[in-house]
Design a protein around this nucleic acid. Sequence first.
DNA 1: GCAAGCGTTTTTGTATGACAATTAAAAATA
DNA 2: TATTTTTAATTGTCATACAAAAACGCTTGC
Lengths: 240, 240
Amino acid sequence: MPKSVKKSGISVHDRLARGIGERILAGEFAPGTLLPNEAEWGKSYAVSRTAVREAIKTLTGKGLLLSRPKIGSRVQPREGWNLLDRDVLSWHRSAIDRRSFAASTQEARRIIEPGIAELAAKKRSAEQLDRLVTALENMRKAKSVPENVGADVEFHSALLQAANNALLVPFGIIIEQALANLFDYTSQRNPHHNLAIRLHENIVRAVVAQDGVAARQAMVKLIDDTDAVIAATTPQKKKN
Amino acid sequence: MPKSVKKSGISVHDRLARGIGERILAGEFAPGTLLPNEAEWGKSYAVSRTAVREAIKTLTGKGLLLSRPKIGSRVQPREGWNLLDRDVLSWHRSAIDRRSFAASTQEARRIIEPGIAELAAKKRSAEQLDRLVTALENMRKAKSVPENVGADVEFHSALLQAANNALLVPFGIIIEQALANLFDYTSQRNPHHNLAIRLHENIVRAVVAQDGVAARQAMVKLIDDTDAVIAATTPQKKKN
DNA sequence: GCAAGCGTTTTTGTATGACAATTAAAAATA
DNA sequence: TATTTTTAATTGTCATACAAAAACGCTTGC
């Protein structure tokens, strides 16, 4: 019996890649494991070998697999996984519990975003500053939760771009996921909205003044606040 | 059998993916550009459409492309590129000049690695500490430049793993490239070897003592030294 | 004249079948 | 037992055919 894959508008090999990818991230196929061969995938998902191969190429491109003739496709060690890939990260997110995912993203943000803010303050161009200011205005104008999330993501993306370092760009995905995650917690209305706006304003002020240290500090405060929001909406947390 | 100079071993679609990927990173196909269609690629590289499609799937999986029926494959905006993918980063590296690549990697390391050191000091397990200590010993014992690079990379990988945050793991690729790059500069013998060892020892000491602040400071000193090495081997640079 | 709807056509998406290349594992040999 | 050869399983590549999506141009109706 063909395994049912969630159907949607997207292509067969994309659905397959997601199906297999989620099972790898969930630990069903641990690193070092040899996957079923292409013919078996085709049979179990009722698709052609062509589609299977394209799905496997996608996963290989993301560092999850390595294929060799006569051997098959082997799950690679975790160090090689492109966890900062949008797809892989979303599979990862659905494979672990929300709390620890939120903790990981916040921890990572705390390491990276203050440095980004400092760089942005020092190196931003006038255009990049414009984009940041516009994002802040959109945050003020936001009337719904999705609008709010969108403007917030745009704000942090603009800041990231203003840092002018291509190697840091991939970390934007973490911020995106962290914010999406956050708005899972703060259900419909966010009473912190005004405070959040003010915290973002402080960052903009520092970037305008090209004051790296102030930008860093303002970002730390913003992340502190996010931590507080998460803690407040959580039944209980255990310390270690 | 030296008659054929064909890139032996590597598959056709891998070579194609690399070929197209390098041309995208080099700017020949800018973001927003529509690539030639699959049939044309097949003709110009003398391969089947199947191979072309698998190469394109690889690149799509790395965030470089998006394909849609009747439209074609369009180069995605840079924000979506998985620059922390090993392949993409190497294509990027060969597309820009060495100096600015070194500057970018050092800038990124300066943002992230101190935080990693601090996390590692606070959260490392006994086994993770062992791995770190072993890497340090291998640095001491290293007799050749490649051995030295290998042990150095292993040291920073061990530290990264000790930080116990999966989202930060992809950053290891930057460290790898940065160190490889560095040893391009310091040609054969590195007179800084003893100093470098001592700087690494300081990090280990802090991690042993679980002193996060000390670990952070020690890492900053190490990166400072790396900057100094780069500056010393460079004709001239301007400060701003 | 102009807008809306409808086929046309281009390009990717999927399937099938065939054969080549690779190499682990089994079999044969020294 | 150790080494070499053969075999077989699996991915890699190709050719062909048709399906599906969607931009484009055409017709039609007002």
